[in-house]
Design a protein around this nucleic acid. Sequence first.
DNA 1: TGTCGTTGTGCGTGATTTGCATAACGGTAA
DNA 2: TTACCGTTATGCAAATCACGCACAACGACA
Lengths: 120, 120
Amino acid sequence: MSDFRIRSKTWLEVDGKPFLGDGRFRLLSAIQRNGSINAAAKDLGLSYRKAWAQLKAMEESSPFLLLERRTGGTGGGASLLTDETVELLKRFEKLRDQVNRKADQCFATCFAEESAHADA
Amino acid sequence: MSDFRIRSKTWLEVDGKPFLGDGRFRLLSAIQRNGSINAAAKDLGLSYRKAWAQLKAMEESSPFLLLERRTGGTGGGASLLTDETVELLKRFEKLRDQVNRKADQCFATCFAEESAHADA
DNA sequence: TGTCGTTGTGCGTGATTTGCATAACGGTAA
DNA sequence: TTACCGTTATGCAAATCACGCACAACGACA
């Protein structure tokens, strides 16, 4: 009964539609690091097309502006996360980590043959 | 910041491949209720083809026999969960509910404007 | 005014999913 | 023994979806 591993995903929704999950979290983080959607996509090994589609989906249901885009100009353009987005990422990361940790705990309790209580 | 709802999924893997998640849990439960794959599929509103594919995928990585199948005979045939599968479903349901409950708690903590600590 | 690297988008191609159609099976009853 | 019935099991064509190439628009700076 214990050949299993547990996995879990946590994400936020708006109006029943997916808003922010792990993939989009990584994308936004990469934009923050790299300063542009294009560089972020390359960084993560995904196509600009796909990254752009994810951002569009997010923006369609976001209650606030996600990022400032600049087309043309020095460097060809750039994209910058808003303060609210940076704050959102922080909260989401904390939430996700807490849930993952709890999932591991529950798994140990429900599926281990003989489990001493872990107190991590 | 609080137009969001939290969602989470929990599932089991074997050898890095998805084994038991919410959809397959519902399928197996429906087989238990209905006594056949066909009736279970109708019950859930999915095609027999798809239900069968899910079972096949599970069986390819399952450490034990999932269900007994009978082709032909009275009623045309039938399918019955093994005792181990019934036990697995119980444990998974418990695990899933615990993780979901914890996710709701964490969400309240991380995203509520002013949150008194909930102690459910 | 030309250059450059962005953002933004149309569209053809390939992969994946879906569902229809059909074969095989075996208890039961005639 | 044989026909019947509803199930398990599967091949295959059609539809749907995802991917990524190719290209247009943009604007600060030299």
